[in-house]
Design a protein around this nucleic acid. Structure first.
Length: 411
RNA sequence: CGGAGUGUAGCUCAGUUGGCUAGAGCAUCUGGUUUGGGACCAGAGGGUCGAAGGUUCAAGUCCUUUCACUCCGACCA
C-alpha cells in the first residue's frame, strides 16, 4: 500500500487522556481510534494486525477440529435467567428497546452456544464437538483502563467443547494447552508467556491462564522458569504449591497480562439447558464442557507493551500489518519511477509492502514514522543507493543497516 | 461505586486579583527555501472556552448542577 493513500497519519504527541504505552503508541501511529473509555475503532493498519492474529488463531482452532460459527451479540434474557447470571454478573450490559424488552449484550456465549448444540446433538455419536467464534464482546467494566488491555467492548475468540466423558474432556483440554502455547509463540510472545495455575472463578476450583510477563500487567504471578509454569497470586498457597511440586524459593514474582484462559466447565451450563446425550445403552447423561478464551484486542496490546521500544512499536513478522516498509527518499521523477517499479515487483513476489512514497516529507520524519509504525524490515532507497542500484536494509530491532543490490534483493 | 485530578482550535498546552477583539506550538492551506533522523521563512484558515443555569456593568476566570475523560482503590470468565 502506498503511504500517501493511507488516510491515517502519525501524530507527534500522544493523546493526553492515555497513559498506557499500548494506547499511546497505537493511537500515535494511527492503528486505533478512541471512541469512549474502553472502546476503540480499528483503522487500516490496526485492522491488518487484527486480521493476522485472527488467522493464526483460526488455523490453530481448525487444527484441533474446531468449527467456526458466529453467534449473536444480542442474547435473550430468559437464557441468562436460566443460568442465574442475569442478576449475578455485575458487568453484564443490559439493553432495552422501546417495547421495554430487555436483552443482554454478550460478554461470553455459554447461554447461546449450549441451546444451539441442544438443537442438533443428542446422541453419543454426535460428540465430541468443539465450536468457536471470533467476535466483539461487551463487558461493563467498572473502570476501563490500560488502553486496549481492558475495554468495555473488545474482540475475543471463545471456543466451547462438548464431551461425553471426563477422559475425553481431559484429552481435549490437554491438547488445548499446547494449542495455546503455539498461538502465543506464533504471535511473538511465546518466550515471555507462561501457563499459569489460577482460580477457576465461579466455574470450578482452578483453571489455567496464559500470562505474559510485562510491567504493565495487572496480575501478579510466581514463575518457575525450569518447569516453565507459573502460579497466579490469587491461588498462591502451600496446598497448590505442593500439588504442583513447586518450591517457594525457586519462584520469581512478576507482573503479567492474562492473554488467554482455559476452563473446565463441567456441567455448569449443560445442566440448566439440559444438554445431554443418550449412550449406547439408551441411558441419558449430561454433557461435559470446556471453554477456551483469548482476547485478541488484549493480545495485540500485550504485544505492543512487551516488545515496543522508546521509538515506537515493534511488530513480530507474523502479525505486522506489512512485512516491509519501503521508504523512498527520492525526489526527482526518474528516481521515483525506479522506486515505483521496485514496489510493483515486490508486490508481484507476494510481499506485503507499505511504500512511503510521500513527496515533500523530509527523511527524518519518514524514519521517525517508520520506527513508530514498527514494521519488522525497512528498505531505504535514496538517490545515493540508487546510484549503485542498491537498497539499504534495516531490521526494526537492529541499529545497523546493510546495503544490497536491487537484483540480489529481488532474488 | 469511593477518593483524586482534568476539560480552552484536529492534537499538545498557556491564559495573572473577573476587564477591551481568547493565544502559542504541532497539524492543515498558499508561496519560498530545504532534503539521510520529526527543518526554516512569510502569510492564511480554524473556537458555542465540555454542557446547562446563576452572580456581575463585565465570566475562559466566581457559584450551582450536570456530562465526559484520566489516575488510585473496589470489582473483573
Amino acid at each position: 500500500m502506498r503511504q500517501s493513500q493511507l488516510f491515517t497519519k502519525t501524530k507527534k504527541e500522544a493523546p493526553a487522556d492515555e497513559v498506557s504505552k499500548n494506547a499511546k503508541l497505537l493511537i500515535r501511529a494511527g492503528f486505533i481510534n478512541k471512541e469512549m473509555a474502553g472502546v476503540y475503532s480499528y483503522l487500516p493498519l490496526g485492522l491488518r494486525v487484527l486480521k493476522k492474529v485472527e488467522n493464526i488463531i483460526r488455523k490453530e482452532m481448525d487444527n484441533v477440529g474446531g468449527q467456526e460459527i458466529l453467534m449473536s451479540s444480542f442474547q435473550p434474557k430468559e437464557n441468562w435467567e436460566k443460568t442465574g447470571r442475569w442478576n449475578s454478573m455485575d458487568d453484564l450490559y443490559k439493553v432495552s428497546d422501546s417495547s421495554k424488552r430487555e436483552v443482554a449484550l454478550g460478554p461470553t456465549h455459554e447461554e447461546i452456544v449450549v441451546p444451539i448444540l441442544r438443537n442438533y446433538a443428542s446422541s453419543y455419536k454426535d460428540f465430541p464437538v468443539a465450536v468457536y467464534q471470533i467476535q466483539n464482546k461487551f463487558r461493563m467494566e467498572l473502570r476501563a483502563k490500560s488502553g486496549i488491555l481492558r475495554g468495555r467492548e473488545f474482540i475475543m475468540k471463545d471456543m466451547y467443547s462438548f464431551h461425553t466423558s471426563q477422559k475425553d474432556f481431559e484429552n481435549f483440554y490437554e491438547k488445548m494447552k499446547d494449542v495455546y502455547k503455539s498461538i502465543f509463540q506464533r504471535v511473538g510472545i511465546g518466550d515471555m508467556t507462561y501457563m499459569t495455575f489460577a482460580s477457576g472463578g465461579t466455574f470450578s476450583k482452578y483453571s489455567h491462564e496464559f500470562q505474559t510477563v510485562t510491567p504493565a500487567g495487572e496480575d501478579t504471578i510466581y514463575i518457575d522458569k525450569e518447569k516453565n509454569i507459573a502460579i497466579n497470586k490469587e491461588v498462591f498457597n502451600d496446598e497448590v504449591l505442593e500439588s504442583l511440586g513447586l518450591k517457594k524459593e525457586k519462584l520469581i514474582e512478576s507482573h503479567s497480562i492474562e492473554v488467554g484462559n482455559i476452563f473446565d466447565l463441567k456441567t455448569k451450563y449443560s445442566e440448566p439447558f439440559d444438554l445431554s446425550f443418550t449412550d449406547e445403552k439408551g441411558q441419558k447423561h449430561t454433557i461435559l464442557m470446556g471453554c477456551y478464551g483469548i482476547g485478541l484486542s488484549r493480545l495485540i496490546g500485550t504485544v505492543v507493551e512487551a516488545l515496543a521500544d522508546d521509538k515506537g512499536i515493534i511488530w513480530p513478522e507474523s502479525i505486522s500489518p506489512f512485512q516491509i516498509h519501503l521508504v523512498s527518499l527520492c525526489t526527482d521523477e526518474a528516481d521515483i519511477k525506479k522506486v515505483d517499479n521496485l514496489y510493483e515487483r515486490l508486490k508481484l513476489q507476494g510481499k506485503e509492502v507499505l511504500y512511503d512514497d510521500r513527496i515533500g516529507v523530509r527523511p527524518g520524519e519518514k524514519f521517525a514514522d517508520s520506527d513508530l509504525i514498527g514494521m519488522p524490515t525497512r528498505y531505504i532507497i535514496s538517490p545515493k543507493t540508487l546510484a549503485n542500484e542498491s537498497v539499504e536494509i534495516k531490521k526494526r530491532t537492529e541499529s545497523e543497516a546493510k546495503i544490497i543490490s536491487i537484483d540480489e534483493l529481488l532474488k
